[in-house]
Design a protein around this nucleic acid. Structure first.
Lengths: 79, 79
DNA sequence: GTGTAGACTCACGTCGACG
DNA sequence: ACGTCGACGTGAGTCTACA
């Protein structure tokens, strides 16, 4: 489990819980739709600025997202 | 106050409180010394992976660093 | 609505060297 | 011990287009 994959899983989960599409998230976060797709599948990693933009669009704090990435990683390492 | 500048300030502060040099931090985080210099002065922004590497070298959690960046930004916006 | 591809610009991150 | 410069390879992020 890489950092990128963990972030992608968290992003996908947060977006689903908000009930919006990748297109809407891309619009709200001012990021390209295809880039959101790459992020969710762990093929790209976000910069710090992108994390802040996404968190704002998702209505959560940036540190909360990072916290969940940490949790996802530690949970995966215990398998 | 940009995100990059806020991160740089936090990084510099955390490194100073640990009492180590940029060189040592670069070695511990497996990042180039010149890049640490750029980060601390807000001329570059880190990727998510870099944040994790730096936080590990500094002995704090990644989410804690991000949290402090948020605090620094909100404190600066109230001036 | 999403995955994928190509092509593109610019920023990340490394390296060697000098003040 | 740090700032800075130039150069370099790779990756972030955009855009158009098709399944």
């Amino acid at each position: 489990m890489t950092i990128d994959e963990a972030f992608g899983a968290v992003l996908k989960e947060l977006r689903a819980s908000k009930g919006i599409t990748q297109e809407q998230l891309g619009f709200d976060a001012d990021l390209d739709r295809t880039f959101i797709s790459l992020l969710e599948r762990g093929l790209r990693q976000p910069s710090l600025a992108s994390i802040f933009q996404l968190s704002k669009a998702l209505g959560v704090s940036p540190s909360h997202i990072v916290q969940r990435v940490e949790d996802t990683l530690s949970a995966a390492s215990k398998r």
